[in-house]
Amino acid sequence: MKWENFRFALFEKAPEALWEHSLIVVITITLAILISVPLGIFLSRPKFKKFGLVTLNILNLLQAVPGIAVIALALPILGLGMKPAIVALLFQSLLPIVRNTIAGLLGVSSDVKEAASGMGMSQRRILLEVELPLAVPIILSGIRTATVYVVSIGTLASLIGAGGLGNLIMGGLALFRPEYLLVGAGLGALMAIFLDRMINYLEHRITPPGMGAE
């Protein structure tokens, strides 16, 4: 191991890789939330509950395909670059968020919903003012799982030219430079831990006092 290589990896290569990686994670998770939360809401409505199980099974299947296989499959269909990588990662990050959205919404006490509806709150209002606020901690917990997942699987995205921390890891492997590997993997791990803690903190912040979550 050479200090020189280490320094080069950390200060010359890492900033760009980290930026690209963050971009992939943020875009993927944002899209995943935009798709999953409405989908979860939809599937938790009494009328559409019957579709819930089917959808969850499909998402489960998608989740079960190894990340590297999804990335590899994305290549011939979607080509190279960041866009196909994000699409591939998206498939893998939907499940935890959809699942937790449904669980969170269905977990809201039926007494609370009954009382709200008995007072004349419309279904829309109940969703926005009662169900979603009460489900948010659980939805966030799903987002946290998905985020950590995308950070780690995101390193594989460099295989199809999306860049990111994966570049450092793959580069290190190809050039027999363990310093690159160390920096890429280390930063990836730090990023995952950081995001995990940050969202965890958010979960606690928005859980109203007296709800007895802890």
Partner: peptide, 21 residues
């Protein structure tokens, strides 16, 4: 129905207070 219920007080055994309010 929502208008009707707004004008009628409703109390249930399980109370159903909104826990986040």
């Amino acid at each position: 129905p929502d208008q009707l219920r707004m004008g009628i007080g409703y109390v249930i055994q399980q109370i159903g207070l909104l826990p986040h309010r």
